[in-house]
């Protein structure tokens, strides 16, 4: 299948702004589906609210566009009920880690087989540029007109601590790596988190004088380094990308099968 076979063409061009990184995430995700040749009937994409959440409407799989922050909870219900389905949950930074932070850590703790994608553009785009839990100290936003004094989460550290069994980070510059990470995450059994640094030229870019979409993508190239590289030692300010956690632990729905087995013996 070509990637076009995975989209709902009638809704294109999509609603995202020119140069929005979310389209690049969609692009890489479709290629991952294509490479893995997964049947569209076996994919359920669950999203919440925000610019990022609109991604589900464009993909021709089973799509569940839910409420703000709760996509992982909905996905948990789908997965528990039909463990053979592939659950993909793309979320924005506010969706995943502000309003949805609790569901994020608990889904990770359970190690339920869901691929969670955090499309981190450091801003609330849909509502017009308010600071998110990933904007970071010193940034500007419509709700931080003087300076943002909130510190950002490190998604990788958070996911690690919460128990995710596959944790990775990439950027919209590194599209081939992005696709590879998506594939790896989908194939793995367990809770996978992929943070994608993605650009919002319209709000984060303008507010923080980060330049055009092109400039922002360039900055992802310039300000990141492969995990464990020498460059990180020389310039500690660089953001590492690549795979941070990759471990095999029992997956939640498989574990629940054991509960069923035990329960049936006690009938």
């Amino acid at each position: 299948m070509a990637i076009k076979d995975y989209i709902r063409e009638r809704f294109f061009p999509h609603i995202w702004c020119p140069g929005c990184g979310h389209g690049m995430v969609l692009n890489a995700l479709l290629r991952a589906f294509e490479d893995l040749a997964i049947s569209k009937n076996e994919i359920v994409m669950v999203s919440g609210i925000g610019c990022s959440a609109r991604i589900s409407g464009y993909v021709d799989v089973h799509t569940l566009h839910t409420i703000h922050g709760r996509a992982l909870a909905f996905a948990t219900g789908v997965k528990m009920s039909r463990p053979e389905l592939n659950l993909i949950v793309p979320m924005g930074d506010g969706d995943a880690l502000a309003i949805g932070g609790n569901h994020f850590i608990h889904a990770a703790r359970r190690n339920i087989d869901i691929t969670a994608i955090v499309m981190n553009n450091r801003i609330y785009g849909m509502t017009g540029g308010q600071y998110s839990p990933l904007s970071g100290y010193g940034t500007l936003a419509t709700t931080a007109p003087f300076i943002n004094i909130d510190h950002a989460f490190d998604v990788v550290e958070l996911a690690k601590a919460a128990g995710a069994t596959f944790v990775a980070r990439t950027t919209t510059y590194h599209v081939k790596q992005m696709s590879e990470l998506f594939k790896e995450a989908i194939l793995r059994e367990g809770f996978s988190v992929i943070e994608v640094l993605t650009q919002c030229p319209t709000y984060f870019g303008r507010k923080n004088k980060a330049g055009s979409a092109v400039d922002m993508v360039k900055s992802f190239k310039d300000n990141t380094t492969p995990v464990g590289s020498k460059a990180k030692l020389e310039s500690p300010g660089l953001i590492e990308r690549g795979i941070f956690v990759q471990k095999d632990l029992p997956e939640y729905t498989r574990e629940y099968d054991k509960v069923i087995e035990r329960a049936m013996k006690k009938r």
Binding site: F12, P13, C20, G21, H22, G23, M24, N27, V175
Partner: peptide, 11 residues
């Protein structure tokens, strides 16, 4: 194909 892979609009 880097243009194809990076295009945010699948264009």
């Amino acid at each position: 194909k880097l243009c194809e892979l990076r295009c945010p609009d699948l264009a």
